Each structure stands twice: as C-alpha cells, then as structure tokens.
Computed example of a mutant assay.
Amino acid sequence: MTYRYLLFYKPYDVLSQFSDDLKVEKDLSESNCQMSQVVATDGQGRLTLKDYIPVPDVYPVGRLDRDSEGLMLLTNHGRLQHRLTDPRYAHRRTYWVQVERIPDEEALQRLCSGVTIKTYRTRPAQVRLLPDEPDVPLRHPPIRFRKAVPTAWLEVTITEGRNRQVRRMTAAVGHPTLRLVRVAIAHLRLEGLTPGQWRDLTASEQSQLLRL
C-alpha cells in the first residue's frame, strides 16, 4: 500500500471532514430530490474537505473547528494517525491567536501553567505575546471586534487537543479568542500554503514525521 501524507491550509468556515453531517441528517428525513433543491435554492450546503482535496481515502489527523483556520495533516496511514491523535503520545500544535485586549504577565503565566476548564486542567503550554501582528491572509468574512477594545496576538503551543481548547483557555483568563490560526503540527509548518491549498509532504518532512 502506498501511503500519502498531505498538508492542507483549511480556510475559515470549512468543516474539517469530507462530508457534511448536517446534510446527511437532512437526507435521512427528506428525499434526495428535496435535499438537492434545498442546497441549490437556499445555499445551505457547507464546505468540507471534499471541496478542496481530490485525493481519495485520506483522513484528517485531528480536527480544526469550523471557525478556525490553518494547518491540517491528512493521511491514509492508520497507525500514524492513531499515534498522533492518542492523548498518550503528546505532540506539539502551535497556534496564532488573536484575542480581545492585551494580556498582562499574570494572564500569560496562567495560560502557561494550565487553566481549569470545567472538570479538567490543561497541561502546561508555551505562550508568548507576539510583538507584531503576524503575516496571515485577511479572513473572509473579517472578524467582529469592538473599536474601543484593543486586540493582541498570542503564539500558543499545546500538547493536547481537547474540544475548542485554546478558545476556552483564553476565555478562562479573560481574553476571548477572535481568530485562531494553526501554524504548526510538530515540525510541519504552514508556510508556503495559502487558504485552500494542499501539498504532499517532502521526503524530509515525511521522514521526520515517521520518527515521531
């Protein structure tokens, strides 16, 4: 079997899966003909990975929320996929996060040390305040922000991937996330891709990935 390893820059408002579960649910309660008319007439169909990646039988390693952007890894290598998503085998994920207001040193330290979210405490993280706005494409639609409230960008590296974790972390210290872009998974970086683009890993990237 030939294994494939792909990097994809997921745009905002795209589901990190190859089928729209909402559409599937509708199909169960409506005829296919009716569903086709709904999608064609009211534009309710949601974009998925299938709209961007024509490679068959590859699956995402982990997920990005619909309202998040950035790097995704896809593969048909099941053993590797399991190892990278199993919480026992922590691997680094790095995000650029735009938040409301400018976090002080205490808020940054809380994020680094771990914060309590519902019934669990996050693992220690690496967090730093970026001195300048990172070079990321404009988002469509743009974020909603309050003109009287400043924003800041953080670089956050975590080793776990709980549901909406980074957003919940920043909210827990009083700085709601406005925009979230994943820029790295372990040694794999987003550079060189624009939203909606994908590519195969280079031989060097693949070799490092298989050593994880």
Rank of each mutant, 00 (worst) to 15 (best):
P150R: 07
N163P: 07
P141Y: 07
P137R: 12
E25M: 05
K50C: 10
P134H: 09
D13E: 15
T194Y: 12
K26I: 14
R79L: 13
V97G: 10
H91P: 08
L73Y: 03
Q17H: 07
A172W: 02
F18C: 06
A148S: 08
T151A: 01
H91N: 14
V149E: 02
R4Y: 10
A171D: 14
L180G: 09
E25P: 00
Q81D: 00
Y120L: 05
Q165D: 04
L15G: 08
V115L: 08
P54I: 14
R4Q: 13
R88F: 09
Y9F: 13
P56L: 03
Y3M: 12
Q17W: 05
R168I: 01
L64E: 02
E160L: 02
P142H: 10
Y59V: 05
E30W: 03
V14R: 04
G45W: 03
V183N: 09
Y120K: 11
Y3I: 01
R79D: 15
P87S: 13
R63D: 03
D27L: 13
I102P: 00
S207E: 08
G70K: 01
P103H: 07
D57W: 08
V149R: 09
E106R: 12
Q206A: 10
P176S: 04
W198C: 05
L6G: 00
P60Q: 09
N163W: 01
V166E: 02
A40H: 13
L64G: 02
E133K: 15
R93I: 07
D132P: 00
H187S: 07
D21N: 08
P124D: 06
R79H: 10
A152L: 02
C33T: 15
H175P: 00
L129G: 06
G62M: 00
R46S: 04
